[in-house]
């Protein structure tokens, strides 16, 4: 038998937090994907909400493009507050 499609599983641990990726399951359709996700990833009150997303629909950056994608931030340290010198006696800034 051919494998069922793969779904990525995201769990919200509790209200106020984002959904976080926890793993994947195989399932023929969204409903069964949700059931499998529940049985596989939330047996111990790990969450209050589940998302399942077809893995094939995820668009990912290519690790070989890491330099082009993420390095440009390194020479823009002026984006960080610590770049700026403020006299010690100036408060609340």
């Amino acid at each position: 038998m051919k494998d069922w499609p793969l779904w990525e599983v995201f769990v919200r641990a509790k209200g106020g937090m984002s959904h976080r990726h926890v793993g994947s399951v195989h399932a023929p359709d969204p409903e069964i994907a949700l059931r499998h996700a529940r049985d596989t990833y939330t047996r111990r009150m790990e969450g209050v909400s589940l998302w399942v997303v077809p893995s094939a629909r995820i668009v990912a950056s290519d690790p070989s493009d890491d330099a082009a994608m993420f390095d440009p931030a390194e020479d823009k340290i002026y984006r960080h507050p610590t770049f700026y010198d403020i006299p010690d006696d100036v408060k609340h800034i």
Partner: peptide, 26 residues
């Protein structure tokens, strides 16, 4: 029952991890 169900879960976490290396579950 809970323990045996956990073992199934552990198998599934691991199959998923192995699949990311390019071998299908099947």
């Amino acid at each position: 029952l809970a323990k045996v169900q956990d073992e199934a879960g552990h198998g599934l976490y691991l199959y998923s991890a192995a699949e990311t290396l390019g071998t299908s579950r099947d």
